[in-house]
Amino acid sequence: MRKATLKVFRGDKNGGDYTKYEVPVEEGMVVLDAIHYIQAKDAPDLAVRWNCKAAKCGSCSAEVNGKPSLMCKTRMDRFEDGEEIQVQPVKTFPIIKDLVTDVSWNYEVNKKIKGFSPPQDDNEWIIYQEDIDRVQEFRKCIECFLCQDVCHVLRDHDRKDAFMGPRFLVRTAGLEMHPKDTANRMKYLKDEGHIGFCNITKCCSEVCPEDIHITDNAIIPLKERVVDEFYDPVAKIFKSIFGGKK
């Protein structure tokens, strides 16, 4: 049976190093299987998050040979024979142990977004499929936070103090574009989420395992709405006379 060598980061916030493990490779095996093999045979204390093993829960995010990936979707036959496979935790979030990082910041950001705000009526909602196709695209998000991991505002500039990141722009877009939502989150996007920090390099879209067009379909339309609301002089005059929507 073919064998693969994995170099897995072992350590915590005080530092650490890569440990090499040999793993037999079965057909169709993914990196997460290899990590489980190591856990069961060599290192029961190897820390890793996972749940569904089917790319539906977004738990097993890591950087495999430097590429932010879901380990459950990264097949072992993608690598050359003899190639060492390096597995390390995602860089943007503080390490807890081995491959597990502290992603609690994301949950804090989520809390600040104004939730779904429908009208208080009792009628059956008639909503046409074509009006929710886009919203459904955003709601495919599995919260793997890989988009947050690669976003250079968060990764390189560490501006978690200011920028909400692509994941939460997608969530906001899903709310704003919902046909029944009545809230307006533009001021929040501009002043607290700092949507302006995004300079549309599209790294987030490239890494999304759900193929959500984060930049084109969520962020750019939101940027346009913010611009319309706060920077369009004609609209400003119009609104001051006739009052604004929402």
């Binding site: 915590d12 856990q39 029961p44 204390d45 820390a47 890793v48 807890i96 142990k97 081995d98």
Partner: peptide, 12 residues
């Protein structure tokens, strides 16, 4: 039985 510490130790 298990080795290692109590921090994020799936074996434990």
């Amino acid at each position: 039985a298990v080795k290692g510490g109590k921090a994020y130790n799936p074996g434990w």
